[in-house]
């Protein structure tokens, strides 16, 4: 798999070439699906991920958190977006939301098949959005001829700011709803190292998360937290054991680092109909950072997992 740093380098050089040659980007998405075979999420990485959220304790290596699975698929999506045939430049793209269906437990130490594709170019008041879809399959299922089992699928929506594609109508900005904070149930204090720590685990070394000067150079007010870090922290301790759940997160304003995020979590319904809704906001400015939602769904059966993680176990 292409390392993420290489993707950023490629994206930089593409951007430079675009600027130099005044080249026009393609107006449609590449039809390619990037496949990564035998991707293994190691227990070391899982432990490093767990270290990001010490309050919620260690992970079950047989049932990894959703965001860690996302981390596994993210380089493939980046690779797709960094190429010259992608209709919008990677650098400066804004992460708008994520929707994930986490069908079955994703174990560490098991070869996974990761696929990334781009879809759903759509106009947005501020430019054009695109959905990056990542699917993660495990080994073949128990039933004869069942084939690889779909474990996880996630869609990340990004905004190419200012990108206007031919044939897309202009979309008017919707009036912003006044934000009313719910009852505070938690507060996250995020130190300046939050972005660097998450980058070290996820490999996402986007400079806007690493250093305030780099972030300002790239148009941010300051160093900001990774959206997926916020998603991961929102989910920490709230994902049902045994997976089967779906969740989403929708970002409003970035979380500057270091900083403090106020959260209000509410639950409604019960059992499989129980819905957890999360609202995060900035107590000082009163502006929302993100909203999230977790639904438990039906609990599926877990896939087989090799007893020893020493020797890679391959699907037949």
């Amino acid at each position: 798999m292409t390392p993420l740093a290489a993707s950023y380098r490629a994206a930089l050089s593409t951007a430079a070439r675009d600027a130099l040659l005044r080249r026009r980007r393609p107006q449609s998405l590449p039809a390619r699906t990037l496949l990564v075979h035998d991707h293994v999420i190691g227990e070391d990485l899982a432990a490093a991920y767990a270290g990001l959220f010490p309050a919620t304790g260690p992970l079950d290596p047989g049932d990894l958190p959703s965001v860690l699975v996302h981390i596994a698929g993210f380089p493939a999506a980046m690779d797709l977006m960094a190429q010259a045939d992608f209709p919008m430049p990677l650098l400066g793209m804004v992460h708008l939301e994520n929707r994930v269906r986490h069908h079955r437990p994703v174990p560490a130490g098991v070869p996974l098949e990761v696929a990334a594709s781009a879809t759903g170019l759509a106009p947005h008041p501020a430019g054009t959005t695109v959905d990056l879809v990542i699917t993660v399959h495990g080994p073949d299922g128990d039933q004869p001829g069942e084939g690889p089992v779909l474990l996880w699928e996630g869609t990340s929506t990004y905004l190419g700011r200012g990108v206007r594609l031919a044939g897309h109508p202009r979309v008017d900005r919707r009036p912003r709803e006044a934000f009313a904070a719910p009852e505070l149930t938690a507060r996250w204090r995020l130190p300046a190292s939050t972005g660097r720590d998450y980058a070290a685990v996820s490999g996402d070394y986007n400079p806007i998360h690493l250093h305030p000067l780099a972030a300002r150079a790239l148009g941010q007010k300051g160093m900001i937290a990774h959206g997926m870090y916020l998603a991961g922290r929102m989910l920490a301790g709230r994902e049902p054991a045994g997976a089967g759940h779906s969740w989403s997160i929708s970002f409003a304003t970035p979380v500057l680092l270091p900083g403090s995020v106020s959260l209000g979590v509410t639950h409604s319904g019960a059992g499989t109909a129980r819905v957890t809704e999360v609202t995060a906001w900035n107590a000082r400015s009163g502006k929302p950072h993100f909203t999230g939602r977790i639904e438990p769904g039906e609990r599926p059966t877990a896939i087989r997992r090799p007893r020893s993680s020493g020797r890679p176990w391959r699907p037949s």
Partner: peptide
């Protein structure tokens, strides 16, 4: 509280208010 990042007083403030 490790899981909420809120001090005991902040927690109680919600309860008192509620």
């Amino acid at each position: 509280e490790p899981r909420t990042g809120l001090s005991m007083g902040e927690h109680q403030a919600r309860t008192t208010h509620r």
